[in-house]
Amino acid sequence: MSPVVEVEDLKVYFGRRRGGTVKSVDGVSFDIAPGETLGLAGESGSGKSTIARALLRINEPTSGRVVIGGRDVTKLRGAALKAFRRQTQMVYQDPYDSLDPRMRIGATVEEALLVRGVPASRRAAGVRELLDRVGLPASYARRYPHELSGGQRQRISIARALGVDPAVIVCDEAVSALDVSVRAQILNLLKDLQEEAGLAYLFISHDLSTMRFAADRVAVMYLGRLVEIGTRDQVFTAPRHPYTRALLAAVPVPGGRGRGPRARLAGEPPSPADPPAGCAFHPRCPLAAAECVTTRPELRRKDDGRITACHFVPDAPTGPGSEVTA
């Protein structure tokens, strides 16, 4: 099936007051097929959220192409932009800020139907149906957001997104603010909706165990660039890039490890305003060599189909427990 989202060499730069530019996203390419979930993993400052906001045209891309539903959306204006907005929706991180606190739930959801041009006579039924799809009783339409729990609010956000009948939903840390027990409910709901409607998801999360459950394929970002992209099993079972490995090793798993040092990486991600030369990861990388300081590795497909951006990724597949040695 042809992809519903194609991102090609996307760059999003921000000018700074004191001069200079921050290359928040610096040449990222990926695609998402209908019914597929692409996970976007990385730490703060990696540019994950900027990609989300560029896809929705909240932030303007500096260059590159974003093709959604066969159309480059980066240049759309006016009515064409409004029409495009219906194809791509987002579920936001903060369930307390993403709903208008002065609007009843019903009115918030109804607004989506209004945008889609559903006539007034059919909107009440439409709201009931949307609430039902996200697992809430119709009586919730009369409530205000402050009367709902975090999980219930995220359900409303999802209902509002579904209201315009989108092809793509971007989940930007959509479950990160939720309690663990509620998080699982929302993850299940997202999966059910995907199967029902063939939705494509861009699932952004810093939480790797959530990512493993939600994503079909995973792209790992570091400082505005992709360092590895592959199927879920490839990335989680046999990560190639030293950063992906370190990231996975740092996740504390219940009962997963005895006492002993956890950190594989020293230091913190550098500022995107002042990225290191060569491979941006080299100051923290256990494999770093002279080549890494001078030459930036491009994202390349190896013989076995694995895609990474590293000078030293071995061609032969490695097992899950294998260590990165300097």
Partner: peptide, 11 residues
């Protein structure tokens, strides 16, 4: 904190 930094702080 980010997960790699969390590991450092816990250490």
């Amino acid at each position: 904190l980010d997960v790699t930094v969390q590991a450092q702080v816990l250490d």
